[in-house]
Design a binder for these strands. Structure first.
Length: 723
DNA sequence: ACGGGTGGCTTTTTT
DNA sequence: AGCCACCCGT
């Protein structure tokens, strides 16, 4: 058999991984070492050489993007359509399983998926239903608690209430929320995984079926798996199916949302007889960039060990510029961008990376003023926009009228003369009778508990939903969407808005119809019994869609260091390299987080192919005050011979301090203290000055005390002594 | 239903 | 400083 197309283009360790015998395999794949290639070629290998059917392979990723990329490459390699193959995201595959076994999973056939926004609304309802004060019990916090429990595989009954009354109350909210969801027939993202885990755990027949069916399980970005995903994988694999996981402990940056780096660290222990393969040859960056990355990440403890190398050139040194302030920083970056473009290079090749989204603004302003097109990643995505969700809520009511989330969203939107009070009556009635809002509304429309006016409105609403459902039976998906937009009054509602915003909303609604059309086209086969409407609604929840339509315009890319993972650019800027910003202040407080910050920095560095430029600002205006930040430790951890510091050119004067203000150095001189200095205070003890502001009698210093944390003190009264 | 004023918050994000 | 959620008046 000719297998050259599978293994020819591989280096030794890659080939070793791809052709390894059937046993647990852990591929530690460094940045830019060809991990996707290994994953896809492995699938081709076990199918073509190992004789497995493509349908007995399970391949899991985290993002839809990674899944579709993998799917495309497998199709190409195997020359088949991978439609029926189990290649997808954890959530997508769990969803597929629940759709197939909805009865066994105790779900209505038309169960709907809540996205985080829907989930928050539902938590809010739970909090209100318990008559708790929303200020004291922020739904956001409860949502976080619930998701954390579910990500650890814990149902309310499994959670140890402990002694903490706050925790006990949150647990009650969790329970109430669960009841609301179950009654409405909706499940949130974490529930997809939890429910599917419980399904195969408790149902012997199904478990045996899946364990027998899948002969090989492959996992991408394994370092990002959380507890429930890991448990799900182990259950799917059972005792006999070999697992092939690819990941990089040095790129684990999602610990804060439940990812467990231990999953990869303990893989060898959990899966006996594991073969570990390291992919360390990098095909992306210059040696300088890799050396910097290696040196930086070497400061972390307990790594699994890996060092990137390249056959390529040394390349340009890393450039570092210490700007006066954030404006100067942006100016510098945009100058460099202009430079690059003037040399005939493309704007697509450039990424500006920052730690937090708030930092993008300065860069945007300068880019706009120079007329350079750019694209900011992040923000609301297509299916998350209000007008889209409004329409989807109507569609969901057609599919499952018991869906309380959608009922709440549609009952008085667009306004149809039902006030807060009438809706409250419906809620109360539903709660008292433990029925869905829809059923409560139907009963109340017949009763005399409401004013005649409200009854008419409710009756009209019920009539509307029923009529839409009847009419939509014979329509295609796109027509159904169009019908909902028209008949619900949403169209008329948004037509009234003559502003740019209204215009954009109308366009989005038009685009939604278009999305329906192309969805029908792509899914014409319809192998499941699921209606195309239900399939579309699930698609909308699971795949929120790209944020911006004009993504192919040649433009500079602005994004956070988190969202850049998996991408690469010839020219990369890492901005805001300051203590407090990056590493972020909130990460120095929690144990383990600092190493995660360092990994994040490692991720950023390894995105650069040719040139890496880092910047910091001496003074940065943040939340309204000036901060004098110290240079990020991460820059200090890179060997200085790899870095070339750019000094401001003589012709640039120091224009940054606004008239009347004085520089930090001047303040320090006047005050006689400096940032970084150790001082003692007779009440708070010893500490370090981390910030100085104001002058003369107004001078204030921020001191980070060893015992009491950081405090702002008026210098005139603090009586600080150098320590 | 809208809009203006106020107060509180402020890291990272996918599904 | 900005953003957003909430509240109250119209």
């Amino acid at each position: 058999m000719d297998v050259s197309h599978i293994i020819n283009a591989l280096n030794d360790p890659q080939r070793q991984a791809v052709t390894a015998e059937m046993r647990p395999i852990l591929v530690l794949a460094g940045a830019g070492s060809g991990k996707t290639r290994v994953l896809t070629h492995r699938i081709a290998w076990v199918c073509e050489v190992g004789g497995l059917s493509p349908f007995s392979v399970l391949a899991v990723t985290f993002t839809n993007k990674a899944a579709s990329e993998m799917r495309g490459r497998v199709e190409q390699l195997l020359g088949i359509s991978a439609g029926a193959m189990w290649v997808g995201t954890f959530h997508g595959l769990a969803h597929r399983m629940l759709r197939a076994h909805w009865q066994e999973a105790d779900l209505p056939q038309t169960f709907q998926i809540l996205d985080s926004d829907d989930q928050l609304r539902m938590v809010k309802r739970a909090v209100r239903q318990m008559e708790l004060d929303e200020g004291q019990w922020p739904p956001k916090q409860a949502q976080w608690f619930i998701n954390q429990c579910k990500d650890d595989g814990l149902r309310p009954s499994h959670v140890d209430p402990g002694q903490d009354p706050i925790r006990q109350q949150l647990l009650q909210v969790y329970q109430t929320y669960e009841n609301l969801c179950q009654r409405a027939g909706v499940i949130d993202f974490a529930e997809l995984l939890l429910r599917s885990l419980e399904l195969i755990r408790d149902n012997d027949q199904l478990r045996n079926h899946y364990q027998r069916r899948f002969q090989h399980i492959l996992v991408d970005e394994f370092q990002d798996t959380n507890a429930i995903q890991y448990a799900w994988l182990r259950l799917m694999a059972g005792d006999h199916t070999p697992v092939f996981v690819v990941g990089d402990d040095d790129q684990s940056i999602y610990g804060w949302r439940g990812a467990r780096i231990e999953n990869i660290q303990h893989f060898e222990r959990d899966f006996p007889n594991t073969l570990v393969i390291r992919l360390e040859q990098n095909y992306r960056s210059t040696a300088t960039i890799l050396n910097a990355a290696n040196a930086l990440i070497d400061h972390n403890q307990g790594r699994m060990g890996k060092e990137l190398w390249t056959e390529g050139e040394q390349g340009e040194p890393i450039l570092y510029y210490n700007a006066y302030n954030e404006k100067d920083e942006a100016r510098f970056v945009v100058d460099r961008i202009q430079n690059w473009v003037e040399q005939g290079r493309s704007r697509n090749e450039i990424a500006v990376l920052y730690r937090s989204n708030a930092q993008s603004r300065q860069f945007e302003e300068y880019l706009i003023s120079r007329g350079i097109p750019y694209r900011v990643y992040g923000g609301l995505r297509f299916f998350e926009r209000a007008e889209i969700k409004d329409t989807l809520a109507y569609l969901r009511m057609l599919s499952n009228p018991l869906d309380d989330t959608s009922f709440e969203r549609t009952i008085n939107h667009p306004p149809r003369g039902l006030g807060q009070k009438s809706v409250d009556t419906i809620r109360l009635y539903a709660r008292e009778h433990s029925i869905a809002l829809w059923n409560a509304a139907r009963e109340l429309a017949e009763s005399n508990q409401l004013t005649a006016r409200a009854r008419t409105s409710i009756a009209a609403y019920i009539e509307l939903i029923n009529r839409l459902r009847a009419q939509s039976q014979i329509l295609g998906l796109a027509e159904q969407i169009g019908l909902c937009i028209e008949s619900s009054g949403l169209k008329a509602h948004f037509d009234k808005d003559k502003s740019e915003k209204g215009e954009a909303r109308r366009e989005n609604l038009q685009e939604l119809i278009g999305a329906g059309k192309s969805f029908e086209f792509d899914h014409d086969t319809d192998l499941d019994e699921m209606s195309s409407l239900d399939a579309f609604l699930a698609h909308a929840a699971l795949e929120a869609g790209e944020g911006q339509a004009d993504e192919w315009e040649e433009c500079v890319q602005l994004m956070t260091m988190h969202s850049v993972k998996g991408l690469e650019f010839p020219l990369v800027f890492m901005v805001g390299m300051e203590e407090g910003l990056f590493p972020h202040q909130r990460s120095s407080e929690e144990p383990g987080r600092m190493e995660e910050e360092r990994r994040l920095c490692y991720v950023g560095i390894t995105r650069a192919r040719q040139q890496l430029i880092m910047t910091s600002a001496e003074v940065r205006r943040l939340y309204g005050n000036d901060n004098y930040n110290v240079l990020s430790r991460f820059i200090k951890e890179i060997p200085s011979e790899l870095i070339e510091e750019i000094r401001p050119k003589a012709q640039f004067s120091r224009p940054i301090y606004p008239p009347g203000a004085i520089s930090r150095n001047q303040v320090e001189e006047e005050v006689g203290l400096s940032v970084g200095q150790r001082v003692s205070h007779n009440k708070f003890g010893n500490g370090i000055i981390i910030n100085i502001e104001g002058q003369a009698a107004q001078a204030r210093v921020q001191v980070n005390f060893e015992n009491d944390g950081s405090k702002w003190l008026m210098l005139a009264y603090a009586n600080l002594q150098p320590a």
